[in-house]
Nucleic acid binder design. Structure first.
Length: 518
RNA sequence: GGGGCCGUAGCUCAGUGGUUAGAGCAGGGGACUCAUAAUCCCUCGGUCGUGGGUUCGAUCCCCACCGGCCCUACCA
């Protein structure tokens, strides 16, 4: 049974991450976004949907050009190098993206120019004069409202009024249509608190936005005015269409659009839930079906973010995924990020919390379950896994876990999906405890208990596959099954499919306990 | 300044206008010994931020305040 709350559940699932700005290095925050998107993509593949999973890098803008110059290379060389860091990070984290888009690619320039020309021809782009308060240190404009007593809020220095002739997008024309869209598509932006934020913003009145620059050259040229390039954010959003061939392959666009989920951080709600649907409307296509917002990871209550060096607090960029992977393993990091923080709320990130999850959930519950079952099968069943019984009490537990996890994944709640899955692990451990097969003589009774336990493990393996693909493959193999959980799909998680008669291998501990030396 | 979110057990969080507010982890006790000193059972533990108000009754609704945070239109 499929939930229809989200319009993207139509047998096709297109999910995107934000495209990451190349001046940053991949860090736990970007890994959090990407791992969540990956798990959702893997879930939908497992559930039988046709999936397109897109991530990439945002490579235009003045900051990139400046950074490249500071490093003595061209912007293109610089972005080639920095973009690659994201590819490498995602490879390390076992991210299954189907495409990786770079905004400096030709295909993107082509789509952007076609998309914006469509808006232009529809009359929603006009030439105007942008007047703003400019901070020389930031090289950035501020609105008068955002100034702090007339000073730049970051540098606390005076700003100067500057004028620039720009092309503007008539965002103001879409207020009513956006409100109508939010009303008729209540699941457009989730969770609801974030939807309310976007809605309140629209109701507060929309102003036109400046979408081009003449002061910089590292961007996509405006087709009808070669003196201008598009402002970085305005070209960035269009990547979601570039990847499905906007302006180049209409069939592909029709196939995937608008049934898309944009997974984003809460700081870019406005771009995705206000600008972007308006841009789509202006270009004459449907707005995206779904924006799923996630919160931020905090360290000690502090934002794990970018420019907070002045406070001396831990910065997100200080925590490289690689160091965590080296210590805990890829799947443990994935599990922690998916399990500990619900999508939509801020979460605490700490080594202590990661260690705690690792030891209790992965080592003690899951890893130990697999190990103890393998041992008993070896000693009481000659190492051959028996088939399960149809009437096992674990069958009910497994069915509950399957339906609960399924619903949670469909509703973009990986943490809940894993919580449901772990209930089955707990039930399997308790089941072993009550029957104590290690006290029994080999025979039918032991076979039944161990067959049930193996079947529970098999179901668990299918359910964790989106979150921990490598672990799922490893367990699958240890209980004697061929191939991978992804080969059989989620429907195979119905109770009773463990065939029996398969050699069960114990192997090394999947998650050796980590001694906390705190 | 304006808009919004959050504040529930030591920790991370669920939750509902109504008899005794829940879970996991941590802590305590017991059982077991197949297993990664793992597991299983039981248990301790909360003036539900503060002060008012609405109500027969509020943790949940309203107001104020305190504390933390986000957005305010160019950085996940």
């Amino acid at each position: 049974m499929r939930r229809s709350q989200y319009p993207c559940s139509v047998g096709r699932f297109y999910i995107t991450t934000p495209i990451y700005y190349v001046t940053d290095a991949p860090h736990v925050g970007t890994a959090y976004s990407t791992i969540n998107a990956d798990a959702l993509a893997r879930y939908h593949r497992l559930a039988g949907d046709e999936v397109l999973f897109l991530t990439g890098t945002d490579e235009h803008g003045q900051k990139v050009a400046d950074t490249a110059e500071a490093n003595g290379v061209t912007p293109q060389e610089w972005t080639d190098r920095t973009s690659q860091r994201f590819r490498d990070a995602w490879t390390m984290l076992n991210i299954s993206n189907d495409d990786f888009i770079r905004t400096t690619e030709d295909r993107h320039a082509e789509s952007v120019q076609k998309f914006l020309t469509a808006i232009y021809e529809n009359g929603y782009i006009y030439k105007g004069v942008y007047t703003g308060m400019y901070c020389v240190s930031c090289e950035d404009y501020y609105t008068s409202e955002s100034l702090n007593e007339g000073l730049c809020p970051i540098h606390r220095r005076p700003v100067v009024e500057m004028e620039e002739e720009n092309w503007f997008f008539r965002l103001s024309a879409f207020e009513d249509r956006l409100l109508e869209y939010f009303t008729s598509h209540p699941g457009f932006t989730t969770p609801e608190t974030k939807r309310n934020e976007a809605l309140a913003f629209i109701k507060g009145g929309l102003q036109d936005i400046s979408i081009t620059r003449t002061s910089i050259s590292w961007g996509i040229p405006v087709p009808w005015d070669s003196a201008h390039v598009f402002y970085v954010w305005y070209d960035a959003l269009i990547n979601y269409l570039t990847a499905i061939g906007y302006g180049r392959d209409d069939a592909e666009v029709d196939k995937w659009w608008p049934h898309v989920t944009h997974l984003i951080g809460k700081e870019i709600i406005r771009f995705h839930s206000v600008w972007w649907p308006a841009m789509c409307m202006a270009a004459g296509i449907e707005p995206p079906a779904h924006v799923q917002v996630h919160g931020w990871l905090l360290v000690g209550g502090q934002k794990l973010g970018k420019s907070m060096g002045a406070s001396g607090a831990v910065k997100l960029t200080d925590i490289a995924p690689k160091t965590l992977v080296d210590e805990f393993g890829v799947d443990a990091l994935r599990y922690f990020l998916l399990r500990d923080t619900p999508l939509g709320t801020d979460g605490e990130f700490s080594i202590e919390a990661l260690t705690s999850r690792y030891n209790s959930d992965l080592a003690n519950n899951l890893g130990n379950l697999v190990a103890r079952v393998a041992t008993v099968v070896a000693s009481k069943c000659d190492g051959v896994g028996p088939a399960p019984s149809a009437s096992s009490p674990l069958a009910t537990e497994a069915a509950d876990a399957l339906s609960g996890a399924r619903a949670a994944w469909e509703n973009f709640q990986p943490h809940l999906a894993l919580e449901r899955t772990w209930r089955l692990i707990g039930a399997a451990n308790a089941y072993l405890e009550t029957h104590a097969p290690w006290k029994m003589e080999p025979g039918a009774e032991v076979d039944q208990v161990m067959g049930d336990a193996l079947e529970a493990i098999r179901v668990v393996t299918l359910l964790i596959a989106p979150a921990m693909p490598a672990t799922a493959d490893a367990i699958w193999s240890r209980i004697g099954l061929d191939g991978s959980p992804t080969d059989v799909g989620l429907d195979a998680a119905a109770w009773g499919a463990y065939p029996g008669g398969r050699a069960v291998v114990k192997g090394d501990p999947l998650f050796p306990r980590i001694k906390s030396d705190a």
